[in-house]
């Protein structure tokens, strides 16, 4: 809650005191293959007109606060990408669930 009593959305962090106690982590965090693949997939989907950057953001912003905090940066992205592709009908929820069930370990 900010001093004016209005609670901003989770991603809307400018000036929010809740995050003040954290030092800024300046250490190097190398991107993983997973990170690079999600990033590349996002770009390709944008070029093909299957996902705008604002849809990606909206999907991330729609994550429940605990997930937003717990998930890594590109983990949020792939969740948002999956939800958006389902919403657009590019893939269906049923086929995605089926694929996740039959996928190897």
């Amino acid at each position: 809650m900010d001093e004016d009593g209005k609670r901003p959305a989770r991603h809307d962090m400018g000036g929010v005191k809740q995050f003040y106690c954290d030092d800024i982590d300046l250490s190097d965090h190398e991107l993983t293959d997973f990170d690079r693949q999600v990033d590349a997939l996002r770009q390709i989907l944008a070029v093909k007109g299957l996902l705008t950057v604002d849809e990606l953001r909206r999907g991330i912003e729609a994550l429940p606060a605990d997930q937003y905090d717990r998930l890594g940066y590109y983990q949020r992205w792939i969740r948002s990408i999956a939800v958006t592709l389902i919403r657009r009908g590019v893939i269906s929820e049923a086929e995605l669930e089926e694929r996740l069930r039959t996928q190897g370990p």
């Binding site: 993983t32 997973f34 693949q37 999600v38 997939l41 390709i44 989907l45 093909k48 299957l50 998930l71 890594g72 590109y74 983990q75 792939i78 969740r79 990408i81 999956a82 592709l85 590019v90 893939i91 086929e95 995605l96 694929r99 996740l100 996928q103």
Partner: peptide
């Protein structure tokens, strides 16, 4: 990020089968 890696794999497979990616 095991769960999300599985999700990425599944999404990419489905997109590939549909000729998108």
């Amino acid at each position: 990020s095991f769960e999300e890696e599985r999700l990425l794999t599944a999404v990419v497979e489905l997109l590939a089968e549909k000729g998108h990616v």
